[in-house]
Nucleic acid binder design. Structure first.
Lengths: 197, 197
DNA sequence: ACGATTGTCTACCAATTGGTAGAGAGAGAT
DNA sequence: ATCTCTCTCTACCAATTGGTAGACAATCGT
């Protein structure tokens, strides 16, 4: 039975550091120090830095899927409420872990391979949203429009908010969880206003 | 008379490279190579990499101020039209230069000093937007709400869209100028729907 | 004509990066 | 008891990073 804790702890530390300061800016040494282990131990668990990033992406994607599924299942049938629940659900881990979604953005700038692997994990989520929006529009329960555009805009806005707290705080905005939540609520209001049938 | 062209060319190259691949990921050597000069020449014009980043920020902020001012001045008096014009104006340079706004985001993750210097440049722009929204709401020409929240949301969304093309393309979205424009137009529609008095 | 200034260069440097090679500790199974 | 496998370690390495020191040419005002 492979000892899981070290690997898990490396993933946790890497996720936090990558998310806050960026993948390129964080060295394996720093991650190792954070975990209380040598850099070579990190390279034992992950063949390369790229493999580590990949592992972190797996973790993030898996978390997102679980969180979204749970939100969809427990939300009422009304599409606006359901969208609302998903937005709130996606924000919850993002607030708890600053930069979780910021990582998603940065990875696409690394290598083509990593951008592709990222797409494999994000695409299904967006596709689900597109299909859902399309269905509800066809049923007349949402104001009709281009579901792809709306999904893409929502995706961009959510990652925008989630990765922006540094800037917002610098501008005089509070970047704590409360500030992020009010911003999230404003987004929810926008979505309601724009999508209401 | 200081020869301006080399310095300007360095700034241009740095802006493009920083914006697309990130500040930490781009070395002075690479920028120098791009300009056709040695790295030490870059360090002659800018005392350090941080100073170069600072110079690039100055350039970006100055461009943004000019562009926004022009848009405000030439837009009709109606607040929705005016907001519309500003959104379009801000996107224009962002589309021409991929990652111009992405740079703004990343810089805040570097050092505290650079985050602060960034704030000095961005804050006035957001403050102007907040003041304007507040005035128009008070005059009953926009649906009332919290202007700070709306301005922050708009800022986050715009930088989100502008820095997301890589991800969106990876997901099957076209990241060319046309794709960015449809996304921008969707944002404009959202703003209209949410702000209309 | 000439000294000073401006701009670019060659030649280094210490520090850090991601990564390799291989030793050794610890536990389980036989 | 020892063999094996899992895990973490020490000891390196080549390459690259941002940055320094100083030579050399061109251009300038005088």
């Amino acid at each position: 039975m492979t000892d899981r804790t070290t690997r898990e702890r490396i993933l946790d530390a890497a996720l936090d550091l990558f998310g806050v300061r960026g993948v390129v800016a964080v060295s394996l040494d720093e991650i190792a120090r954070d975990v209380g282990v040598r850099k070579q131990t990190v390279l034992y668990w992950f063949d390369s830095k790229e493999a580590l990033v990949d592992g972190v992406l797996d973790k993030v994607a898996a978390e997102l899927v679980i969180v979204i599924d749970a939100a969809v299942r427990s939300a009422p049938d009304d599409p606006l409420d359901r969208i609302d629940a998903v937005v709130r659900a996606v924000f919850r881990p993002a607030v708890r872990r600053p930069g979780l979604l910021g990582l998603v953005r940065e990875v696409s700038r690394l290598s083509q391979g990593q951008a592709d692997r990222l797409a494999e994990r994000i695409a299904p989520l967006i596709d689900r949203a597109v299909a859902y929006l399309g269905d509800e529009m066809a049923a007349g329960r949402l104001r009709s429009g281009d579901p792809r555009l709306i999904a893409a805009l929502g995706y961009a806005t959510i990652t925008g908010i989630a990765t922006e707290p540094e800037v917002l705080r610098a501008v005089g905005w509070t970047a704590d969880a409360a500030g992020l939540r009010s911003l999230r609520d404003e987004l929810r209001a926008f979505l309601r206003a724009a999508l209401q049938a």
